[in-house]
């Protein structure tokens, strides 16, 4: 690891000020960033820990919206949205392992936008709003491809607002070695239609499967998906699965998600 200074502010304002320094980067749970620092994939001169900022932690549930502070750990999300948004709780409790869930945060996951991460699928399928220290970004405009988001340098995810759906399910086909999703499908049904977001599959990161959304919005049932398939072109191909295999899994998991949500 290169050397750096570690700052531990307790307010968003102080964190933003610290992030204004040259080569500064936020540190949340460190579950992704600390291993990358060790691999010298990142070389910040100042690391700004967000872990002591109480104003970006915790969950509030109000009028059909679940708002989760950007610094809230996966373990806290799992526990606190269990009743209000069970599919989201299920997603959180199946991230990694208990020690990872005690440190890793929703803001870190969404900022990182790993192509196999779970939260991006939930945010996109729920039409969530990513709240930062400067603005609000619709999930549809936020994810810009593998490890790329609309966040500007020094911008902090302070909260994520999820409209609670009528029904939802997350089906994760786990890659057993990494515990990330080999493919994961998050389906959410709202009064104005169904949204289906897929993680783990595309080389462009999380995406919406619009044909499935149209079919399911017309008639909500696994039958509606009969005959729908995706091409393996542009899908991730690696030692864990080919692009065609991943494309096949998306259709299978989407059917399972419909059954689980129905």
């Amino acid at each position: 690891m290169y050397s750096f200074e570690l700052e531990i502010p307790t307010t968003v304002a102080d964190a933003v000020a610290a992030l204004g320094k040259d080569e500064a980067q936020p540190l949340a749970g460190g579950q992704t960033l600390i291993p990358s620092l060790k691999a010298r994939l990142a070389a910040p001169s100042v690391l700004v820990s967000l872990a002591q900022i109480d104003e970006i932690k915790g969950v509030t549930i109000e009028g059909g919206t679940v708002t989760i502070g950007g610094g809230t750990t996966h373990a806290t999300v799992a526990a606190e949205v269990a009743e209000a948004y069970p599919a989201l709780s299920y997603l959180a409790i199946n991230i990694g392992d208990p020690a990872v869930r005690n440190r890793g945060t929703i803001g870190g996951s969404l900022a990182n936008n790993d192509p196999s991460a779970c939260y991006p699928a939930a945010a996109l399928a729920s039409g969530a709003t990513i709240v930062t220290n400067t603005r609000e970004i619709a999930a549809d405009d936020y994810f810009e491809g593998m490890f790329t988001t609309a966040l500007e340098e020094g911008e902090i995810v302070t909260a994520v607002k999820f409209p609670v759906p009528e029904a939802a399910a997350y089906i994760k086909f786990e890659q057993p070695a990494s515990r990330f999703a080999l493919v994961g499908v998050f389906l959410a049904k709202y009064a104005d239609g169904v949204r289906v977001a897929v993680t783990g599959a595309s080389e462009d990161g999380v995406f919406r499967w619009s044909e499935a959304e149209d079919a399911l919005s017309n008639s909500f049932g696994a039958d509606a998906l009969e005959g729908l398939s995706l091409s393996g072109d542009g899908m991730i191909s690696d030692l864990h699965g080919s692009g065609d295999y991943r494309a096949h899994l998306i259709a299978v998991l989407t059917k399972r998600a419909v059954k689980a949500a129905a």
């Binding site: 570690l6 531990i8 460190g30 600390i34 060790k38 872990a51 990872v100 005690n102 440190r103």
Partner: peptide
């Protein structure tokens, strides 16, 4: 592993399991 994968370094911080290889002492 030193990369938050193997769990050989698990300790308790305020009663919760945490991987000691993936938290700085100052935290």
């Amino acid at each position: 592993c030193d990369t938050s994968q193997c769990g050989a370094c698990v300790i308790h911080v305020d009663g919760e399991s945490v991987k000691a290889c993936s938290i700085f002492a100052a935290e």
